[in-house]
Amino acid sequence: MQLEEQTITIDGQKIPFQSGQTIMDAALAAKIYIPHLCYHPEFKPHGSCRLCTVMVNGRYESACTMPSVAGQEILNNTKELNENRRALTQMLFVEGNHICPGCPKTGNCQLQAVAYYVGMLSSHYQHFYPYRDLDPSHPDYVVDFNRCILCELCVRASRDVDKKNIFAISGRGIKAHLIINSPSGKLEDTDFAVGDKAAFVCPVGAILRKRTRYTTPIGERLYDKQSIRIVGDSQQLHAGATKYGRK
């Protein structure tokens, strides 16, 4: 006997899911975009950025951690949820130093793309302007802590895939910040390498390949032509790759 297909409903659209899938997994498989920054399909869900918060049977839940259960009625693309997402995105912008005009990641940045998607036109909240350093010590990569949004994707990639455990979060609450696990606290004193998974997962411009920036012309960057809703996450980009310039 053939099993009846299990489905959930997102914004009135019935979509199938397989056992063990989260709402986010099922939505992405059905090409439904739920905004997110800390989610990555290759890593255990984290649920920290809260951008993927949806309404499940009348309750707020993060789509990346909530298992799909047959019959769930889910609201995703609503005015209220998107306004909340916009406020969360604005908070991320003011907590760090995200100067898009000068950032090498501009046009390829997931935070910037989400901000466009949720209709963010200003920071709204007062900027913290935190004083954060830059770690240019590594010969091939630079870590700019100004742009870190604490998604922990580098932490998970280095720990779970690279098995190096180079990155970590220290401090709590508003004092939480990215650190590098080395005696000096510098990247040069780790075995971080160009091919590491952690080198490619940063959704913003916090971990960048040295010297090879702005290589993709304006108009050809990931989010220049289409919204993140269509294009998807920025991790698909390889740092420094370009149609014309060197890698």
């Binding site: 350093d133 010297r211 920036r213």
Partner: peptide, 14 residues
């Protein structure tokens, strides 16, 4: 000061 040099042409044009 303290910024990577390859960012400078885009930064200083501002």
């Amino acid at each position: 000061q303290g910024r990577p040099y390859w960012e400078i042409p885009v930064l200083v044009q501002r």
